[in-house]
Design a protein around this nucleic acid. Sequence first.
DNA 1: TATTGTTATACTCTATAACTATA
DNA 2: TATAGTTATAGAGTATAACAATA
Lengths: 158, 158
Amino acid sequence: MASETATTALAHSALATDIDFLAVKAFTTGTRIANRSLESHGLRVRSYSVLAITCGEVPVTQRDLAEFLALDPSQIVSLVDELESAGLVKREVDPADRRSRVVRATKRGRDRFAAARGAIAEAERESLATLDGAERAELLRLLRKLVFGPEDAPSAGT
Amino acid sequence: MASETATTALAHSALATDIDFLAVKAFTTGTRIANRSLESHGLRVRSYSVLAITCGEVPVTQRDLAEFLALDPSQIVSLVDELESAGLVKREVDPADRRSRVVRATKRGRDRFAAARGAIAEAERESLATLDGAERAELLRLLRKLVFGPEDAPSAGT
DNA sequence: TATTGTTATACTCTATAACTATA
DNA sequence: TATAGTTATAGAGTATAACAATA
């Protein structure tokens, strides 16, 4: 069977020990699943990410969003445009600095997020099905250290 | 500072415990670094991946490549076109099934791969700098289990 | 002079559908 | 009829550059 040949070839190639390659392979599949799950909520992973952050307690500007999503400010514009025209977030001029726009989720946005969050959790269960609970926890810990750094890593919480 | 606000907001959002989100964030950065490292070798991560596999001992068809890179066969066509016109791989008609093309690295392709592999290793060191050796090993183990499954995972080797 | 948001553009990646040649 | 490879196309993501309003 071709698929057996494929797996064999991959397992014997240099890529089998390339963390970046394996990660991209695993998580592009994860993104695909997540995008399908979000489709019925009118979102994709990127717009979901923006919505999730604006649903938090800390007020954020578009510049803030660009920074930690590691996207160019111009990309944030279209994401916020999209969410705003759907009535999920609104832009507010920052009185302290009238160049800045603080982006906040509306009531409707928070409701949408709550529903979409369930879809994301389900997608994650699917894409991480081969890992047990302890392994997922460890994977989460390693990723947090990668993203937030050794010190800044927020505690895992409850 | 805005960047502190950004990290704080992210750490307090629902995304801080979303494995897929954190993984995508961590490894799109990794891909960016890897692409820059490969630039001087005339490759990108996707063409590097194809080249890496065709440098392995197991002969692979384009269909095989599509399968384990999780790309559409039509995307493989342009990747192989690109590598072939650079003289790094060549297509051979499979005598057993003349529909299939076996893709093999040329001598030049293997040399290029050897050089590029060093660049990839360097990029990986950079993108995983916050993890120590044991953590990288564990991350690799978890990713292999995700990609190859619990049984098919090739042994980590030396 | 520097920064926030915006518009514009080009290139890469992702996702499908249809076609050809072989089986 | 089914499969391997190919061509074509449209939409999403990535990367830059330039501009207006504000600091």
